[in-house]
Simulated assay, not measured.
Amino acid sequence: MTTPHHKSLVGIHLILLPLLAGCSALGFAPYPVAHVMTDDTQAVLAQTPSNLDVPRELSKEVQVAHYLQPGDELLIETTDGDSTVRLPADQRILADGSVDLGAYGRVVVASKTLEQAEALIQRAIFDLSGESTAVNVRLIAPIHRYYVIGEVNSPGAYSLTGHETVLDAIMEAGGLTARASACDLLLARPTEPSACRVTLPVCYRSITQLGDSTTNYHLKPGDRIFVSRQSLCEELTGPLLGSRTCDRCCKRQVACCDPRVAPIDLPNFITSMFETIVPVDPPDADSNGSNATDSNAPDTYTPELTPQNPAPPPQRPADGPRPTPGRLDGELDFGMQLR
């Protein structure tokens, strides 16, 4: 015969059994778990100002210049079809920062821009063969990465092509798991060891359910997206409070009376600065070794950065024609109309 006292003891044992066994079904485990936002992170995130002027989904930015680094994949070729110079076309920059030019040796191009790399290769060819030929260096696959960590289905490092946002990154990582926290998501940017920290809150449900681009940041190389797992409180109160807006997110969303005001078909890449590319000519075939330090040599190459404050793209009338795009830079074709 089972007494009420025995029934209560059995009930308590059934509740405590998964906890004592280390099961995390209720968000609790006797051992630490990796996907929990630390107190330091919470404190730094609480200090982050709201409405930061950072690139977002509808106001993306292009990088000023790419500096080559080990792992970048290049295409090196001569522009003169009649030239006798033959170069290995596909090149991956080695760990020592060099590329293999075959009969013309190795050239260290790490930490150089594409224009500086072209000048170095042209000089190496001229020094060994005496032939002046123009070389084109194209960046095929940069080594840039971003990282998605925590409660996602496929955490890992992913290649950054330049257009990705937080939503793109989470979808690339397979989406959130069933144990992902609804509010403890952030984007962390790498900073120097003794510098301040850049942590940006991510309002995932506002991004996906309302199309709010406030926290759908435009990713940069090295960005880390962290998705924390649900806490015990979140799991227990989820059925009752799970639909509430997070404290870090906007709680005053307003519906647009006319959905056509959304700028869904306009170029959204802007540049705060642009680099004036100095033309690189091959060495003069009639010159001697004394001109090895001419004005086009990489040691004296200094990119000129000119600040720009471009006006926002014009809004297309609801019933009017689409704007005609201008001539685009073929090397940095981001869909931006250059003026």
Rank of each mutant, 00 (worst) to 15 (best):
T2S: 08
H6D: 04
K7V: 11
I12C: 08
L14C: 13
I15W: 15
L17H: 05
L19T: 02
G22A: 06
C23R: 06
A29Y: 00
A29I: 01
P30R: 08
P30E: 06
P32F: 06
H35Q: 07
M37V: 06
Q42E: 04
A43H: 13
V44K: 11
L52K: 15
V54K: 04
R56A: 10
L58Y: 13
S59L: 02
V64T: 03
L68G: 00
Q69Y: 02
P70R: 12
E73P: 01
E73I: 06
E73K: 07
L75I: 10
T78R: 15
D82F: 07
S83E: 05
S83I: 02
L87Q: 04
P88I: 10
Q91A: 14
L94S: 10
S98H: 05
V99S: 08
L101C: 01
V107H: 05
T113M: 04
E115S: 13
A117V: 06
E118H: 05
L120Y: 03
I121M: 01
F126K: 02
F126P: 00
S129L: 09
S129I: 07
E131L: 07
A134D: 06
V135G: 00
V135D: 01
N136D: 12
V137L: 09
I140E: 06
H144G: 04
R145F: 02
Y147C: 03
V148M: 13
V152W: 00
V152K: 03
A157W: 02
G162D: 03
T165H: 08
L167I: 14
D168N: 15
I170P: 03
E172W: 02
E172Y: 00
G174W: 08
A180L: 11
S181R: 01
A182N: 09
C183S: 10
C183W: 08
D184N: 08
L186K: 07
E192P: 02
E192N: 12
E192V: 10
S206C: 10
I207R: 07
L210S: 09
L210R: 10
G211N: 07
S213D: 14
T214R: 05
N216T: 01
N216W: 01
H218A: 12
L219F: 03
P221Q: 00
P221L: 00
G222E: 05
G222M: 05
D223A: 13
R224K: 07
F226R: 11
F226G: 00
V227W: 02
S228E: 02
R229Q: 09
Q230R: 11
L232H: 10
P239H: 09
L241F: 12
G242P: 00
S243M: 13
R244L: 08
T245M: 10
C246T: 04
D247G: 07
R248P: 04
K251V: 04
R252E: 06
Q253M: 13
A255L: 05
C257P: 08
D265I: 04
N268G: 13
F269P: 01
I270W: 08
F274H: 08
T276E: 15
V278T: 10
P283H: 05
P283L: 05
D284I: 09
D284M: 09
N291S: 14
N291Y: 04
N296I: 12
P303T: 00
L305H: 04
T306C: 02
A311G: 09
A311P: 11
P312L: 10
R316A: 01
R322C: 05
T324C: 12
T324M: 11
P325Y: 15
G326H: 11
G326L: 08
E331T: 08
Q337P: 14
L338H: 11
R339I: 04
R339A: 05
